[in-house]
Design a protein around this nucleic acid. Sequence first.
DNA 1: ACACAATGCGGACCGGGGTCCGCTTTGCAG
DNA 2: CTGCAAAGCGGACCCCGGTCCGCATTGTGT
Lengths: 224, 224
Amino acid sequence: MLYAGFMSAAPPSAPTPQEPVEPPQLLQLGLGDDEPCLRADAARNRARLLEAAAGLVAARGADAVTMEEVAAAAGVGKGTVFRRFGDRTGLLMALLDHGEKKLQAAFLSGPPPLGPGAPPAERLRAFGRAALRRTVEDLELQLAAEPEAGRRFTVPPYRVRHHHVALLLRQAAPDADCDLLAHTLLAQLDPALVHHLTHQCGMPARRLEDAWTDLVDRITGTTA
Amino acid sequence: MLYAGFMSAAPPSAPTPQEPVEPPQLLQLGLGDDEPCLRADAARNRARLLEAAAGLVAARGADAVTMEEVAAAAGVGKGTVFRRFGDRTGLLMALLDHGEKKLQAAFLSGPPPLGPGAPPAERLRAFGRAALRRTVEDLELQLAAEPEAGRRFTVPPYRVRHHHVALLLRQAAPDADCDLLAHTLLAQLDPALVHHLTHQCGMPARRLEDAWTDLVDRITGTTA
DNA sequence: ACACAATGCGGACCGGGGTCCGCTTTGCAG
DNA sequence: CTGCAAAGCGGACCCCGGTCCGCATTGTGT
């Protein structure tokens, strides 16, 4: 368990009487664990919901599935879904959690060139390739899970990626505004963009990878 | 009239019996005109709606305004709003149309360094500054108008900007994948990102402008 | 074993976006 | 001026995401 769950800290509004969704996630990047100790029935329902959702999504496509259907398929009430996952996006993101954690594991503590050990520019190039591949894997879901505009950058998986890229950049291009530059780099991995380019413009995935590499080279000044 | 309206070509689904929204917009970049010849009453209602919407948005913020309210305030039925503008996003975008056209005018045919006449890298830098300023101007609305994930890159104003940036890039960095690079550059002007950085991270607008300039320099290899 | 917080459950309910279709208005042709 | 097709109108309607709150389940302390 490397990092943390997915959900943002539930209802952003003032002291909701409703309890928070999943872990409060104050986000000290790099540790923490989901499911802080769910009550037996709650845990069971969570599992059922995830399974039901996965099934329906696989069968009919993410955006043809309604929350009520998922609840029904899992044999629970609609309220339960929302209490557990906050909102539709939350549920969808939970479905992606596993894959994302694996990627995080790989770049935070896996073997080089993705993990520590390789030179930063090299790691950046590897990161892009890996992330791109992961995105292509289940583009559809990833697209459907995209949070409403305002939250795109606040959601934990994005923050982790951003943190990582910024870190590498600070080593590879010390004189740049790395925080901002990291956002720019990440934009090239945005599922919506990847979808647009591959599905609507018919670009091969390979071209995206090459462009990433080239971009890293230009920005860091390295070539490799 | 420089370019064209805002709406994408209405209901993407098969031959809707409903007529298309605004101009079909087959989008030959650079010409065309809105309101292809609305019937008298339709034109009147369109104007009323725009006015009503602008008023409500200004008064209470974009996302506290419902379509039904706008319709009521304009003294028309809800159906009319949707027929004219397609969907909520369409209406909001129409509200932004004027400002966007002005910007387009400036970089397509205005005076240098924004318009033709200056060297490409220079024009790029100017473009970023101008776009950034325009975005900050009415961030709130721009944010609320953001189309659902899939369409972000298909919407006319984005396409125009992309086309323009790609064009300049082809001159300033002929050996790069300019189409893709253009998307990357534009990502730094994304209203959602600008909002995040300025409002949630407290960055001054100035820093964004500097980062843009720096990014252009790194990508084109030029300096200043 | 029992009581009693605390935690979770579920489904009625709400609000708003988007659709539909029978009726009205427009404006052109004769 | 009149008739008539096309264009436009509007509001009842549907659907779905999200909320709420009285009731049921847990599991802990004694």
